[in-house]
């Protein structure tokens, strides 16, 4: 009877572990990812809290400030806060500089948009230029090399491919 009870208890424990272990794992991963999205606000380094090695400090690991921030992340993730809510709480506490990248909203959206806008504008301009130059060439065809000159040039090149 006692044996059966022990076995039942172990089975229940195992089942509980199976249910909660992936959740705990996922929580840890989320906390780790969030730790890499916020800056260490100690003022003595320019690392993400999750990657703080605090150069020049007595200890080359997360400094006290980074550890405090990471613990706060852990606590908020455990209490079920969403990623946005966790990051927002840090912005409220430390200001927008705590985020490692500018958020894609408001004026900060321009940080993300401008490189794309410039690339597209550049691509359009380059395409336009290429078309114009090609058209110009069609209107006034470029002078051609005489076959004799080309043959002598190839001879002097020693057969080297001039692609």
């Amino acid at each position: 009877m006692l044996k059966r009870a022990k076995l039942a208890a172990l089975t229940v424990l195992f089942a509980v572990a199976l249910v909660f272990m992936p959740a705990a794992h996922a929580q840890r991963d989320r906390a780790k990812a969030l730790g890499a999205k916020i800056m260490c606000m100690c003022g003595g380094c320019s690392d993400a809290a999750g990657k703080c090695t605090h150069m020049g400090g007595a200890f080359a690991g997360p400094c006290e400030t980074a550890q405090k921030e990471l613990k706060e992340v852990d606590d908020r993730v455990s209490s079920g806060s969403s990623d946005d809510l966790v990051l927002q709480s840090f912005v409220q506490e430390y200001g927008p500089t705590v985020l490692i990248s500018p958020p894609a909203k408001g004026f900060d959206l321009w940080a993300w948009l401008m490189p794309i806008v410039m690339l597209l504008a550049g691509a359009l301009l380059a395409s336009y230029v290429v078309l114009q130059w090609t058209r110009r060439s069609e209107v006034a065809p470029a002078a051609r090399l005489s076959p004799d000159l080309l043959a002598r040039a190839r001879h002097q090149m020693g057969g080297e491919n001039d692609d």
Binding site: P96, I100, S101, P102, W110
Partner: peptide, 20 residues
């Protein structure tokens, strides 16, 4: 230079780190 620009436009500094 974006952190300088935001500070100038919005009055607060932001971070543009490696992920960007």
């Amino acid at each position: 230079l974006f952190p300088v620009l935001t500070e100038w436009v919005e009055g607060n500094k932001i971070t543009v780190g490696p992920p960007f």
